[in-house]
């Protein structure tokens, strides 16, 4: 007999997700589906007004560059300084990707396994919560002491920051048990493994994607933060470097790159979610 199906009374009407988890599921930050031309026009117009207005106001009041550079100075700096910045960009992306890949894999597997054993889950969850709520940046100085100024301590910090996020959200997904769906698969002779791959994972997918999104954003924060703490590489390091030299256009150019990375992550997971979890809209 199926373990989850067990000997539960077949009453399973609409028992939806339970339990906590940090979720973006209800976010209204969606990238709208059908934007009319008029709406697009307004959106562009507002952007132009904000950026142009900033440019104009900064010039009008004669705000010095070292306090706040104008948008045009920032973009210029981005292009002129690009050849010096991009190796740091690669370092940051490398640390983020490797750290996230490690953290997310462990988080996902842990979530999948632990939710099958409620008792183990009760034991492990407090520690995961501890990892979620404690800023992993705090560990970076210690990691640097042990591992030096290379990428390793940052990768570990990123894994530690993103993994628990992926884990806690995926666990929320895996905890959704729809007895009817499991019974259905079972009635067609599904094995426990098939029930896992064909029913449990797809059913948890919306929350897994939320976890990956939140986890990767946390990973980005941690990467940059860790780079600011020590070492000579990465965009975070460039931030401290340029601000120390009061080269504000270059400083803001790096911030612009970070913003673009962050938005890209969001858009990526938004589309992944649209593809794999839109059934739950």
């Amino acid at each position: 007999m199926d373990k989850a199906l067990g000997n539960k009374i077949p009453e399973f009407n609409k028992k939806k997700s339970e339990g906590g988890g940090v979720g973006l599921s209800g976010t209204s930050l969606g990238l709208g589906d059908h934007r009319t031309k008029f709406e697009t026009l307004i959106i562009i117009l507002v952007a132009v007004v904000i950026i142009g207005g900033a440019e104009f106001l900064l010039k009008w009041f004669g705000v010095p560059q070292y306090v706040l550079p104008t948008p045009s100075q920032i973009v210029t700096a981005l292009f002129t300084e690009w050849k010096f910045i991009w190796p740091h960009l690669l370092t940051t992306l490398y640390e983020l990707l490797v750290g996230f890949a490690i953290g997310a894999s462990i988080g996902f597997v842990l979530a999948a396994v632990i939710t099958q054993f409620p008792f183990v889950e009760k034991i492990v969850t407090p520690y995961i919560l501890l990892l979620v709520t404690t800023p992993m940046l705090a560990l970076v100085p210690l990691l640097i002491l042990k591992l030096g100024f290379g990428s390793e301590p940052r990768i570990i910090a990123v894994a530690l920051a993103s993994g628990p996020m992926v884990m806690i959200n995926s666990a929320t997904g895996f905890r959704r048990v729809d007895l009817a769906k499991i019974a259905l698969a079972r009635s067609f002779g599904a094995s426990t493994f098939q029930i896992f791959t064909k029913i449990r994972i797809p059913m948890a997918m919306p929350m897994i994607i939320v976890g990956l999104m939140v986890g990767s954003i946390f990973g980005l924060l941690t990467t940059v933060g860790a780079e600011m703490v020590g070492g000579a590489e990465g965009l975070g390091n460039r931030l401290t470097y340029y601000s120390a030299l009061i080269r504000m256009p270059q400083f803001f150019a790096v911030i612009l790159i970070l913003a673009i990375i962050g938005i890209s992550i969001y858009v990526l997971f938004f589309w992944i979610g649209k593809k794999w979890a839109s059934w739950e809209a």
């Binding site: 019974a183 009635s187 797809p202 979890a277 739950e280």
Partner: peptide, 25 residues
């Protein structure tokens, strides 16, 4: 074969994929 309350289709699969499920399994 069993038929359940509320059709019990898998919401993440389209109709063809839902019908393919028993074969897949």
């Amino acid at each position: 074969a069993m038929i359940f309350q509320d059709a019990n289709l898998l919401p993440w699969r389209n109709l063809a994929a839902n019908i393919a499920l028993p074969f897949e399994l």
